[in-house]
């Protein structure tokens, strides 16, 4: 990330605060995500997930998308994590430890993840290594809402139906009969 700072400094508009925040939040996110997928305690995993999600919300603010950030906090941190906690409680099975995954499986997963990381990282560095991101002012929420209800109305409707279907589906799947 120092490379990013240096590049910004070279252009003369050093946004120290933004970059410092970015690096700090990114570090927290990566660490939390890592803990989330490695910790043995299921509840702790959910709490680490909260940190990742909150960090993502912070990144959205850095990117000027305030509305997405607020929604992220409301929906993810507010609703989805609670849903996860309920799921953990209802499935009681292992309030505590997730049984250690077999070593073989972990190695396999790590290899695949690293492979993916190399490919995507390489592609990104190759394609966007000097693309600069200038964010002058936050994106007004009215723009987002206008776009949702005019240009992307079909997608919006589709998502609405999807949510309805998921609602019904969840009830049908989970009910006791």
């Amino acid at each position: 990330m120092t490379g990013a700072l240096a590049a910004a400094a070279a252009d003369g508009d050093l946004l120290v605060a933004q970059n410092v925040f970015f690096v700090a939040i990114a570090a927290v996110m990566v660490f939390s995500a890592f803990r989330c997928v490695t910790t043995r305690n299921v509840v702790h995993a959910a709490l680490w997930l909260v940190l990742v999600l909150a960090g993502a919300a912070a990144q959205f603010i850095l990117l000027g998308s305030e509305f997405v950030a607020v929604t992220q906090v409301l929906v993810y941190v507010g609703a989805i994590v609670v849903l996860f906690l309920f799921g953990i409680m209802l499935t009681r099975a292992s309030m505590g430890d997730d049984e250690t995954a077999s070593g073989e499986k972990r190695v396999m997963a790590a290899v695949v993840a690293v492979l993916l990381g190399l490919v995507t990282g390489g592609a990104l560095i190759e394609s966007f290594s000097d693309t600069r991101l200038v964010i002058n002012e936050p994106q007004p929420t009215s723009l987002v809402s206008d776009a949702i209800f005019s240009q992307y109305i079909i997608a919006f409707e589709a998502v609405s139906v999807l949510l309805l279907a998921a609602l019904i589906g969840a009830i049908v799947v989970a009910r006791k009969d």
């Binding site: 990330m1 990013a4 590049a7 910004a8 946004l15 933004q18 970059n19 970015f22 990114a26 996110m29 990566v30 995500a33 990742v52 990144q59 850095l62 990117l63 993840a113 690293v114 993916l116 990381g117 995507t120 990282g121 990104l124 560095i125 966007f128 290594s129 000097d130 693309t131 600069r132 991101l133 200038v134 964010i135």
Partner: peptide, 15 residues
């Protein structure tokens, strides 16, 4: 800021 710092963060989280 660079675009790539966000994209790489995304890539790392993805992995």
């Amino acid at each position: 800021m660079l675009l790539n710092q966000f994209l790489l963060l995304g890539a790392v989280l993805f992995c």
